[in-house]
């Protein structure tokens, strides 16, 4: 109780010193201060920590701030403070711009895929006539390492690709009407890779350098395709890659990167 009273009186003394009490309340507090020496001591202690006006600071002549005076200075540039809202807005704009760029980039990459028919079940990879692809794989010696290519810009890559496709189209009169395509076929758990004959390479209407082929439906009977039970997408992809490039091995090493730091090499036995 005493502690409560002391805390209350301490607050009242501070309010009194700050001139925040009305006359009646101030009178009551004064009465307590006069009646109790401990409150008087507290009042004096607090009164001593109030700053006084006469602290002898030198007076500065600020007449140059007066407008129209002979000493008036040209207006100074007011320092602008950086507001956090602008920072947040800039961050959001940056994220949006990055998102839009990535989206545009993905769209371009999708167009570069040749506009080939895609579905969940059938994945095709036809960049060049099949005989050309086969010649490439035959030329590669077993165990030979891939020669690093100089870094080329996207424009150059697009140009080459466009020229390649145009050449394929130009030479289409001399090649058979149907073309070979490599396809991964999935039927339930079973899958397989097969070469199937497609229609002629055709330019997609209204597009530039986009071509497509259509596959016969059904592609082949399951027996002809030699479908096997899938061991998962990754081994199948590896197997398909090895089949395409004629690089037949019993095992292969795959490096998987998770995030920026985690890198694991996993050896798959096929």
């Amino acid at each position: 109780m005493e502690q409560f009273e002391e805390a209350y009186m301490e607050e009242q003394i501070l309010l009194l010193l700050d001139n925040e009490l009305d006359t009646e309340q101030a009178g009551k507090v004064w009465a307590q201060i006069v009646a109790f020496p401990e409150y008087k001591a507290l009042y004096e202690e607090y009164a001593s920590v109030y700053l006084t006006q006469d602290d002898n600071l030198p007076l500065i002549d600020f007449s140059y701030l007066e407008k129209g005076s002979e000493y008036e200075l040209p207006p100074m540039q007011i320092k602008k403070t950086f507001k956090p809202a602008w920072g947040i807005a800039a961050g959001i704009a940056l994220i949006l711009a990055t998102g839009i760029l990535l989206r545009v980039n993905n769209h371009e990459v999708a167009q570069l895929d040749g506009g080939l028919a895609k579905s969940d079940k059938i994945h095709q990879a036809v960049q060049a006539p099949m005989h050309q692809l086969a010649a490439d794989s035959l030329e590669r010696k077993p165990g030979s390492r891939k020669v690093p290519q100089p870094n080329r810009s996207r424009q150059v890559h697009q140009k080459d690709r466009g020229q390649e496709l145009k050449l394929a189209i130009a030479g289409s009169e001399t090649v058979p009407a149907s073309r070979s395509a490599v396809a991964s076929i999935y039927q339930g758990d079973a899958s397989g890779v097969s070469r199937v004959n497609s229609s002629k390479l055709q330019e997609a209407a209204g597009t530039h350098n986009n071509y497509y082929v259509s596959l016969p439906a059904p592609v082949k009977s399951p027996d002809e395709l030699k479908l096997e039970t899938s061991n998962g997408l990754l081994p199948e992809m590896i197997k398909a890659g090895q089949w395409i490039f004629g690089d037949r091995k019993n095992n292969t090493t795959v490096e998987i990167a998770i995030g920026n730091n985690e890198k694991r090499s996993i050896k798959f036995k096929l």
């Binding site: 600071l57 007076l59 500065i60 600020f62 007449s63 701030l65 007066e66 407008k67 129209g68």
Partner: peptide, 16 residues
């Protein structure tokens, strides 16, 4: 302007 100049005289040192 006169009132502004008065404020300069009166309060500039307090602000300082």
């Amino acid at each position: 302007r006169a009132e502004y100049n008065h404020i300069v005289k009166e309060w500039a040192n307090n602000v300082f």
